[in-house]
Amino acid sequence: MATNTSTAANLPPASEALKKSQPKSMLRIAISQLFEHRLAVISLVVITLFLGVAVFADVISWATGIDPDAQDIMNRYGPWTPQNWLGTDEVGRDVLIRLVYGTRISLMVAILVAISSTIIGISVGAIAGYFGGFIDSFLMRVTDSLLALPLIPVLIIMASVDHTKIPLFSLISPESISIVKMVLVLLTFSWMVQGRLVRGEVLALKEQEYILAAKTSGMSSFAIIMKELLPNIMTPVIVSVTLTVGSSILFEAALSFLGLGIQPPTPTWGNMLNNAQEIIYSAPLLAVIPGILILIIVISFNFLGDGLQDALDPKAIRR
């Protein structure tokens, strides 16, 4: 590992001046660190590729002239052809383009969950850590309790609730309702890790001189949290976001696989797998490919998280 980084990282963020200059140099260091983590770089490329596919799904569909919903009922479970690179599915839709759109939905759900759970996690963690006392112990008990639950059974119960019995849900269009529901269900159980993490960081930081200085200068608590604390705890949070994306993809796939996830005809990797498992011996690729895609994308996010951790965490540098 590069020696120059270790000295920089070991400096405590004690003075105002250093704090200001820190982000830039830290960023540069972090990037150079990250690029030393070969797997993380490869993963970043893979993720970018998948994101590109997700964002440009419509363009891909337009360019290839293949509509993900266009069926050819006379060509079910069709083999490889120059038009259908991966063959066709149970109603003769092109498998490849459905995987492309599946990428979009699966990634969208996972990223939405990761971002919104981070927002909740930061809010809860920052409030608990900054104010301490009763609020802290209350919020942390809630967090601990949620963290302790057996996740899959709870998710199954949540996912099987009839959304029509929940008033606000009637406003959402039926096509997207299962997506919204999935995001909400996953969100409920994924913010706690970030919450605890942020609280720990805030607890450590709030006794720092510059925070105390800000307090005495009469800054409001909100401003201190937003301007002084948050920028300094973003690094572990970013790592945690990447890891949450990975685990959300896994949970979405698992629930869709159990039939409690996003409903067809909206394609996701999970429900494509669910659809394919019955004919796994006749058309094994239909089940194998989504599984491998899930594996690739989740492992990429995990590698990236690991790389970021190494790059951003001063302690890890000493390895």
């Binding site: 696989f257 594996l295 492992i299 995990n302």
Partner: peptide, 8 residues
């Protein structure tokens, strides 16, 4: 091991 979907 962490990344593989268990049902798959």
């Amino acid at each position: 091991g962490i990344s593989i979907p268990s049902f798959w």
